[in-house]
Simulated assay, not measured.
Amino acid sequence: MKNKIKEVLKGRGIKVSYVLSVTGFSKSYFYDVMKGKTVPSLMNARKIAEAIEVPLDELFPVEKLSKKE
């Protein structure tokens, strides 16, 4: 799942260690989410968005579905 976690952290000067301390996630889980290897549950996605203080839909933008006709 594509996300903008890395860009937002860098842009706001937020350290991964801060997000880990606020969310309680393991380092490996958070990095997998950040790299798009793991899709977080809605609850975990909200925790990340709240920790970074960014709207959920901005952090995890919805990919448009193409219509097949």
Rank of each mutant, 00 (worst) to 15 (best):
M1G: 08
M1T: 12
M1Y: 12
K2R: 09
N3Q: 08
N3L: 07
K4M: 13
K4W: 01
K4H: 08
K4A: 13
I5T: 10
K6V: 02
K6C: 05
V8N: 06
V8F: 15
V8K: 12
L9E: 05
L9P: 09
L9N: 07
K10F: 05
G11A: 14
G13F: 01
V16T: 10
S17T: 15
S17E: 15
S21D: 11
G24S: 04
F25A: 02
K27T: 01
Y29V: 02
Y29F: 09
Y29S: 02
F30N: 01
F30Q: 03
D32A: 09
D32I: 00
V33N: 04
M34P: 03
M34S: 10
G36M: 03
K37T: 06
T38C: 04
V39D: 11
P40D: 03
P40H: 01
L42S: 11
M43D: 10
M43T: 11
N44W: 01
N44K: 08
A45R: 10
K47W: 03
I48M: 05
A51S: 15
A51H: 02
I52A: 08
I52G: 09
I52V: 15
E53I: 02
P55A: 09
L56E: 12
L56F: 10
L56R: 03
D57S: 09
E58N: 12
L59I: 12
F60S: 10
P61G: 12
V62T: 14
V62R: 10
V62D: 14
E63A: 14
L65C: 05
S66G: 08
S66W: 07
K67H: 05
K67L: 14
K68I: 14
